[in-house]
Design a protein around this nucleic acid. Sequence first.
RNA 1: GCGGAUGUGGCGAAACUGGUAGACGCGCCAGAUUUAGGAUCUGGUGCCGCAAGGCGUGGGGGUUCGAGUCCCUUCAUCCGCACCA
Length: 924
Amino acid sequence: MGKYDFQTIEKKWQKKWKENRTFAAEKHSSRPKYYVLDMFPYPSGAGLHVGHPLGYIATDITTRYKRLKGFNVLHPMGFDSFGLPAEQFAIKTGVHPAENTRQNIARYLEQMEIMGFHYDPDATLSTSYPSYYKWTQWIFVKLFEHWYDKAIESARPISQLEDLFAAHGNVSVSAATSQKSYFSADEWNGYSPAQRSSILMNYRLAYLADATVNWCPALGTVLANEEVKDGKSERGGHPVERRLMQQWMLRITAYSDRLLDSLRDLDWSDSMKSMQTHWIGRSEGASIVYKVDGVSDTIEVFTTRPDTLFGNTFMVLAPEHPLVEKITTDAQRGEVEAYIQWAKNRPEIDRIADTTKTGVFTGGHAIHPLTGKKLPIWIADYVVITYGTGAIMAVPAHDERDYEFAHKFGIEIIEVIAGGDISKEAFISKEGTMVHSDFLNGLKATAAIPAIIRRLEEMGIGKREVTYRQRDVIWSRQRYWGEPTPIYYKDGVAYALSEDELPLVLPEIDEYKPSETGEPPLSRAKDWKIRPDGGILDLNTMPGLAGSSWYFLRYPDAANDKQLVNPEIEKYWMPVDLYVGGTEHAVGHLMYSRFWTKFLHDIGIVSVEEPFKRLVNQGMIQGVSQLMYRHKVTNEYVSADLISDEEKGDYSLIHTDVNIVRNQVMDVEAYKKWTRDSSAKFQLNENGEFRTISQVEKMSKSLFNTVNPDDICAQYGADTLRLYEMFLGPIEIAKPWITDGITGVHSFLKRTWGLFYGDNDEWIVTDEAPSAEELKILHKTIKKVEEGIERFAFNTCVPAFMVFAKEIARLNCNKRAILEPFVQVLSPFAPHISEDLWEALGHSSSILLSSFPQWEEKYIAEDEIEYPVQINGKVRVRIAVSAEAAEEEIRNITLENEVVKQWLEGKSPKKIIVVPGRIVNVVV
RNA sequence: GCGGAUGUGGCGAAACUGGUAGACGCGCCAGAUUUAGGAUCUGGUGCCGCAAGGCGUGGGGGUUCGAGUCCCUUCAUCCGCACCA
């Protein structure tokens, strides 16, 4: 067989694609557009491993396929290049994060090119480039300069709000706001600039507020909830504590309803939609105001079950609730303070793991709004300050948590919905009739809810209320390597930088750590932080989420220095038609991207409400680690098969490099060379082998289980790697990387080469006319591949290619009419070999300028025979027989199948479709 | 606890709208070639059985002429959220 020299072929075509700018999209065109996007990577120092390209291969295939189908395709790539690792690397080594980032990006691009990924050369960006983050800052300024009007469900300029205040005060303004008190127009007009500024802060979509934050002392910064996992920082695993700090926040909660509503029409997976729905956590109920015995303050609670109000026997406040101090009696003060202290220092992990109820009585009482009864006020950490109002009306009879609490502390339990047995457990169902509930008695619980809300509203002590689990997001980080916040302060008032002052470029500083006094790193830039007008710049930077929340808007017009994006171009390209990336961004990146898109839509920058029409989540490719047993005392390594279960305790498991292990046998000499430790002792088994054990875990450099795509490409070629990754299984499924099967797809490519070049490396393609059988094979293949790509099931395409190659080889077919369309169909998957064969077939331009062949039904099912069958007017019968024996078979089937028999005897059948090799198909 | 998903050979997996279950690849078996190893080629390979035949898509039930696919129920695994009032 001729030689398939993938090394030469792949280099040749990669160079050509680059030189010819093959993947540049037309910015604007009369052709239909298709926008394909990968979640852009953070360029880490470790480079890409075989897990990363999975999604990139899928989008590259889609890009090439859609181009063959005649679309103007945009497929860009950029880098999410602000972030903690580069900064920590800088702290350790002194290398500027920008320099480190530049090197890593270059390495990523090189690796991508080797795998045959080529992106639009004009549509590229990095979030840490000033030309890009100018617009990230610009959006922040816009958020600062807008408020959210709930009456028209849209963002509006702050200047309009000031006009409203000057004319009417704030009572009639329906805004998403943290402003609690009301003022008249006269009052507003009398306020000082600083007073007005602090009121407006409560309305801005980007605002300053005291927030309980996740403070990570080790990193010296605040983290978003999404960046905290089980009470530790996601990056680095450092402990995180709660602290009250003044921070920039984004009022994403203004958009909660819209974020929820428009989720419905998106082509996303159910689990992704459900995660987002859950994250927003909308729940409907009522808010009720309670008077407190002896003090003028009131307690406001939120409940989803106002119907159970008559069963309310005590109140619970979160330990952090501001009223706790005021209502605590002297007798209880010591106990309350001790509890608060304990709850505060209790690690987050314990609080999550241990759900037994704890709490103490404050000594204070609230007044039941309907019965006037005195209700004891407790504090307990099962009530959290961050949800609702941080206070609840406890109804032990009909809430599991309140039930457990009341039981433990001996508090009265009153049944108000009949149907359960409250001596045993709380009855939480709404299927029941109201009892002991005054005017609600006899009603169904579901009917009692609107009834009691109406009563509370009449009395002016409660109203219908919707609460969300979602909270506003903290947008300040006390870091260096991020976008500086484009804000300055003068006389206690925060001002945004004007557009021509952007970008506010990161200053050079000599050390990247926070200052000795605990101020952010930017405080070290002494000249930078003081403006000519005496204003002082904000010293916080934005979180990593900032740059990634809008990058998809920038690609289509990435070089524009006048606008975020040209409106014409934006209108043509948005939304993204296909977005591919991992599930880890389910609630972070995707939520904020949707939020920013909606905001930019409100202010007229973006034409769409939703940025990502279709989302596909690729599963993570895991590594198969190899581990050795090392004796805890002697430090000798022992072959795994020599160790019994009882002995395992005497050994520790040590990771070794997967690249020196084959079939669970490690090359001991290679290990010594790798570790530069020739003195390591090994005990081999009787065959002279050293055996390891394997374990599936995350693919990571530190576990020595990474497989480098460059190595695979050097050994088998990029086309083989691409086909193999697609062949492994559905993109969405997580699976371990096993290189073993790769020879299968590699020999397919060799066989394909052989169809053109024969055994002696001589061109053997002929112009003979194809046979019916050959055409059938070809068209079946085209159909299968096309359907596979459309369904994003690339794993079903690869076998279709293999079957084609096998069957065509069996027929000794080397006819151009069959092979040429096949090369076109194969090209999205294995572009290098396809381009080369395309050229050898005599075409002077790239295969990407050709078209995707059309499959035709007549070739696929040409000997399908239809027999008219009349069956109750709506039944079709499909029978498995050869064309010749059709009538015979129908008779046989008739005998076997009662229903068919009746139909054939009773009425004349309407239609029977006979497909050779297929079975009876009856559709009723 | 709540929400989402997934269960098919020794393994990765096909079977899109109900219609010959296990395509394709790995592995394994046999043969050919090779000095050997590797590579390559041909044939076989769901399970039980010498065979005829029987059994098979986590378990149990149901709908249907027909169920991996639809419905109910149960178990197991994975992911997400988690005292959310």
